[in-house]
Every structure is written in C-alpha cells, then in structure tokens.
Design a protein around this nucleic acid. Structure first.
Length: 229
DNA sequence: GCGACAG
DNA sequence: ATCTTGTCGC
C-alpha cells in the first residue's frame, strides 16, 4: 500500500499556515448557488488519525444525490502533515483528502466535508480551503459549534438558527432530526449558505449527520485500521 | 493575559 | 480526532 508523504511545500509552522490562509482567502466564491440539491453527484470526505503511527487515512465516498446510493469509494493513507491547531484544521486534513479525491474515477460533484467553511475565525475553514485548492463546490457540516454563539433551533427537522460572528451570519445550526443536537452548516466555496443548508437536509433523511459523512467516516476508519506501517 | 476552540 | 462495555430502545 502506498503511503502518501507530506507535501514538500506544505506549511511547517503556524505562522506559515496563517500566511497561506491570507494568500488564498480572497479567492473564495460565495455568490454561486452551486449544484441543484438532489441532482448529480455528492461526495463526502473525512479523515481518521493514528498519532501513534503518525498515520492519517482519508476517504472520499461518492453518492448519487437523488438516491443517496454509493457510486464510488476511494481512500488514501499518508503521514500526518500538520498538528491539530484550532483554526488550522485544514492543514492537517487536506493533503490526505486531496489524495483520496485524486483517486476517484469521475468528478466528485459537490463535496461535503467535516468542519467549517465560512464559519471560521478567519473566514477560511477547511471547506473553503479545499474548495479554493480544487475549484470544486464545497460545503462544511460540523458536529460542534466551535467558537460560535448560537441559539438552538426549534426541535423539528429543517429548523435553523444563525451562527453569528460580529453580527454577521457565517453559518447555520440545522436540525436534521427532531429532538437531537443540530449540525452546523456553512458555505465553503461556490455554494451559498441557503443551498448548503438545503443540500445538508436532503443528505440527512434519517440520521443527524449527512449520509456522505457517515459513509466517509466509516471508510476512513476502516482504511486506517487496514493500513500497514 | 488566559482559556476555549472544527477534527 | 482518540481512549472504550455494556446497554437502552426502535
């Protein structure tokens, strides 16, 4: 099995990573609707870690957006490229994610990742970063509110409440299942917030998390477990 | 200044 | 993210 190395030009320090965010942040596109919800392909990406072995495994699972059936799966195993630093998650996840996406036969369509896009302290979270690097439409669906204040949405499926930063709506808490903790949606790149929420709801007909992330999560864990060091 | 903070 | 058994419930 091939183990992807850390990119030679990858930031090695927090200062370098911050400089990269500053350099790329202006390229984010937010005024496009993105692909129509329920049509075409949707790809979930996720990453699992084994810090003991310094390994990271990424998975990309492509679903038919209309039926939510799995169309294709790909994985990649690599060395951890960056430590976990709140606000710099993208530098830890993206190299392996790019490798997994690169192993897909067809284009991924809309990409859904764990974490945030615009709902980020510096407005350039994982989903936006991945979008700018690939040019793909990307949205972020996180399980935790990070540092953002929000009022819990109503407990019925489809209800939302804004995620506010300096009075600006940078994302939305979305109830995907009655009575359970909401997920936190934000626009990443080439998809506006309204459409990001619509996609997330369609992708989560039964469980709290979108089918895309559920599939990707299971696959990257499996890939990590099967990885040989 | 200190702590908290997506995964 | 990850460390971790059984258990309550549809």
């Amino acid at each position: 099995m091939t183990i992807i190395g850390r990119p030679a030009d990858w930031p090695a320090t927090e200062a370098e990573a911050l400089a990269v965010q500053d350099a790329l942040r202006g390229r984010v596109v937010l005024d496009e609707p993105g692909p129509p919800p329920g049509a075409g392909l949707v790809t979930g990406v996720d990453v699992a870690y084994d810090d003991e072995r310094d390994l990271v495994a990424a998975a990309a699972v492509v679903l038919d957006a209309a039926t939510l059936d799995v169309v294709e799966r790909a994985t990649a195993v690599g060395r951890v490229a960056f430590p976990y630093v709140p606000g710099l998650l993208a530098f830890r996840e993206i190299p392996a994610v790019l490798a997994a996406l690169g192993r897909l036969t067809a284009g991924p369509g809309l990409v859904v990742c764990d974490g945030y896009g615009q709902a980020h302290p510096r407005r350039f979270g994982l989903a936006s970063h991945l979008g700018v690097l690939t040019g793909l439409p990307v949205i972020g669906v996180a399980k935790n509110p990070f540092a953002f204040a929000y009022r819990p949405p109503e407990a019925r499926r489809g209800a939302t409440s804004p995620l506010l930063a300096d009075g600006e709506e940078v994302g939305r808490a979305l109830c995907t299942r009655a009575g359970v903790k909401p997920v936190f949606v934000s626009a990443g790149h080439r998809v506006d917030l309204d459409h990001a929420v619509a996609h997330t709801l369609r992708l989560s007909p039964r469980y709290r998390l979108p089918e895309t992330t559920r599939h990707a999560d299971a696959l990257c864990r499996q890939a990590l477990k099967e990885a040989v060091a």
